[in-house]
Design a protein around this nucleic acid. Structure first.
Lengths: 155, 155
DNA sequence: GTATGAAATTTCAAGCTTGAAGTATATCCC
DNA sequence: GGGATATACTTCAAGCTTGAAATTTCATAC
């Protein structure tokens, strides 16, 4: 009788390799985006993310909800929003009926700034992912979608 | 004459979607890894990365080289190595013939600790990427490999 | 109405990360 | 040799991130 080795040894190694590659690609792309946001818009990726979330809800979001959507801690959002307020891109609004909560929304200037950055952002991504056809993109997207890690509502 | 619209509009959107999905998956996986390293080994992902790089070179690496391989800034490596030295996982060694440079290498304890973490790490990845067959992993890997963003030597 | 617990948010310490500035040493060139 | 330049590294300020500990306000149960 032969001793049964773990069945998935080969696929385990292959998955590890895939993970390392995904990590390297995303870090590289993120680094590019971060640098361009900094140089061209004097902004950052976290700020961009918050603005993107707010942009979808013209009436604003509670800090709560913002933190949940972005999947970052509450305390983290506090700091980022604070800087966005300083930038004049975002405003805090008292929520009627619950003095614990705050509503956060883009200012008019914030909406303008975001629109401009978002256009550039899409272009950068498009260039950085050059070489991935529409079909490939769709295909990889489907595969990733099956992962336990891909749980969420953002489109 | 019709005005020519940008040819790649559809694939641009598809690429953006792919990017957002990749970002979400990698962040999710990273968050899991970070938490488990913290809870089970009282360590962090950056420290794990440094140890992984050092593990391949028993003779040690210059700070220089470490920073280049990990693709992070010099100053960053300084801090991480400092904490690893405090942990007793890593040691600094003066380099003969160049008093500017320092060699960094794993201690015996560091090697043992890394071996244990690396095994767990591979298992975690394997579980988190469950659902990706060996073929799929290989296929996605190949696609990612074609990206401009995927430039590098790590296997 | 009041205590008790839940909810929304902020504060905090620690660590990671970067880009820029600073220090020390090495190398090059005359 | 000696001055200029390059290399290896550290320091620093600013920002991001987390988990844990406050703080304030709300809701619920008696």
């Amino acid at each position: 009788m032969t001793v049964p080795l773990p069945k998935q040894e080969a696929s385990s190694k292959e998955r590890l390799r895939l993970w390392l590659r995904m990590l390297r690609v995303t870090r590289q792309v993120e680094a590019e985006l971060r640098e361009r946001l900094r140089l061209e818009y004097d902004s950052t990726l976290p700020r961009f993310d918050v603005m993107a979330a707010l942009q979808r809800d013209p009436d604003g979001l509670k800090m709560n909800e913002l933190s949940r959507r972005l999947r970052v801690s509450n305390g983290n959002v506090t700091g980022i929003v604070e800087r966005l307020v300083d930038d004049g891109a975002v405003e805090r609004i008292a929520l009627e009926g619950d003095r614990r909560a705050t509503l956060v929304r883009l200012t008019a200037a914030g909406r303008r700034a975001f629109a401009e950055m978002a256009t550039a952002h899409e272009g950068w991504i498009n260039a950085l992912l050059d070489g991935v056809s529409e079909d490939d993109a769709h295909h990889i997207g489907e595969l990733l979608h099956r992962l336990p890690a891909d749980t969420g509502e953002t489109t």
